[in-house]
Simulated assay, not measured.
Amino acid sequence: MQTVNIHEAKTHLSRLVEQAAKGEPFVIAKAGKQLVKVSALDSPTGDQMRRLGFLSGYIKVPDDFDRMGSEEIGQLFGADDETTA
């Protein structure tokens, strides 16, 4: 595994990150003392990725969803009964 000092890492960061992303991790050292290891993250596979709508067909939103609790909310804010109906 390649070890680079901080100055070299700053100078060649783009190249080093590309190498790490391809599976070649490296270590950054300061004054010869190893500080951190940089390696690629595991990307989720297609089956592991969550998408919007993944519960489609499993839940049902009520038709009056936007009016649910309107009476209680109206009472909390002092609305009369005619405006909440």
Score class of each variant (00 low, 15 high):
residue 15 R to Q: 03
residue 20 A to M: 13
residue 46 G to E: 09
residue 26 F to R: 00
residue 46 G to H: 08
residue 64 D to S: 08
residue 38 V to A: 04
residue 70 S to R: 13
residue 80 D to Q: 05
residue 75 Q to G: 04
residue 82 E to L: 15
residue 16 L to T: 00
residue 57 G to S: 06
residue 72 E to G: 09
residue 38 V to S: 03
residue 69 G to V: 00
residue 25 P to I: 03
residue 78 G to L: 07
residue 60 K to L: 12
residue 9 A to N: 00
residue 34 Q to N: 14
residue 70 S to G: 06
residue 30 K to M: 02
residue 7 H to K: 11
residue 71 E to M: 08
residue 33 K to R: 11
residue 37 K to T: 01
residue 5 N to I: 03
residue 37 K to D: 00
residue 30 K to W: 08
residue 7 H to Q: 10
residue 56 S to L: 11
residue 39 S to I: 06
residue 24 E to Q: 13
residue 68 M to V: 06
residue 85 A to E: 05
residue 10 K to C: 01
residue 30 K to Q: 08
residue 23 G to K: 14
residue 29 A to T: 01
residue 78 G to K: 07
residue 72 E to W: 14
residue 40 A to Y: 07
residue 10 K to L: 14
residue 65 F to M: 09
residue 62 P to L: 07
residue 14 S to P: 13
residue 8 E to R: 08
residue 83 T to H: 08
residue 74 G to D: 01
residue 76 L to I: 05
residue 44 P to C: 00
residue 43 S to I: 03
residue 12 H to E: 03
residue 76 L to C: 01
residue 9 A to I: 07
residue 23 G to T: 02
residue 56 S to T: 12
residue 44 P to L: 10
residue 74 G to E: 01
residue 8 E to P: 04
residue 7 H to G: 01
residue 58 Y to D: 00
residue 72 E to H: 12
residue 59 I to F: 12
residue 60 K to F: 13
residue 73 I to G: 01
residue 84 T to I: 10
